[in-house]
Computed example of a mutant assay.
Amino acid sequence: MKLTTAIRTAVAQEIVDAMAAGTANPTPVMEIYTGAEPAQMGQTISDTLLGTLDLSAGAADNLNGVIDFHTISDEPSAPASGNAGWCRVLNRDGNEAVYFSISEDGSADIQFNTTSIIQGAPISISSLQVVVGGA
């Protein structure tokens, strides 16, 4: 799918707002899972949770349809081993805001330098941008 910059910007802002919504917790979180991104949100997740990373309270900025994440805190010790396939962001009230697919070859929403997560090892994301709807 390709979108105009105006539409990409509007959609990206909706995602940024959804991630930052809520007041129950100080920050939204990103949960990283094995497997493929589920077809629908809100279903029971059977994939293995590989890590949970805290986002900043505002989560991200919208730069003309590019979601530019603020600081992402490390997962100091991954609870399980596996290959990361997708992640979800839960807003500050713990509600699902968005799912992103993960790859290490550029074929997904988010590219990691490696999708291999090892139990007990840290998970670190130094910077993250997601282009909404292609360029």
Rank of each mutant, 00 (worst) to 15 (best):
S73A: 09
A60M: 05
T114V: 09
G106F: 11
I123L: 03
S77W: 05
V98G: 12
L90T: 02
S116H: 13
L49Q: 05
D109Q: 10
L49E: 03
P122F: 02
L49M: 02
V89G: 09
G106T: 12
S73H: 02
R88N: 09
T48I: 11
S77M: 01
I72P: 03
A78S: 09
F112N: 10
C87P: 10
I123S: 01
P38W: 07
S73V: 06
S124I: 13
S101Y: 12
S127W: 13
T52M: 08
I117K: 01
D54R: 01
L90S: 03
I123E: 02
A39M: 12
Q129T: 01
N91H: 03
V98E: 12
V66R: 05
T48P: 05
G42V: 11
S73G: 08
S116W: 10
Q129G: 09
H70F: 12
D54Y: 10
G85E: 07
A108W: 07
Y99K: 04
L55P: 02
D47A: 06
T114C: 12
G82K: 05
N113T: 15
D61W: 06
N91C: 03
T71P: 04
A84D: 04
A60V: 10
F69Q: 02
G82D: 03
E37G: 00
E75G: 08
A57K: 01
L50C: 08
L63N: 15
T114H: 11
Q119N: 13
P122A: 05
I123F: 04
L128T: 11
G51S: 05
A80W: 10
C87F: 06
L63F: 09
G51F: 06
G51Y: 02
T48L: 08
D68A: 14
G42N: 12
P38L: 08
H70I: 04
G82R: 03
A84P: 11
D47L: 05
A39F: 05
A78L: 07
I125W: 04
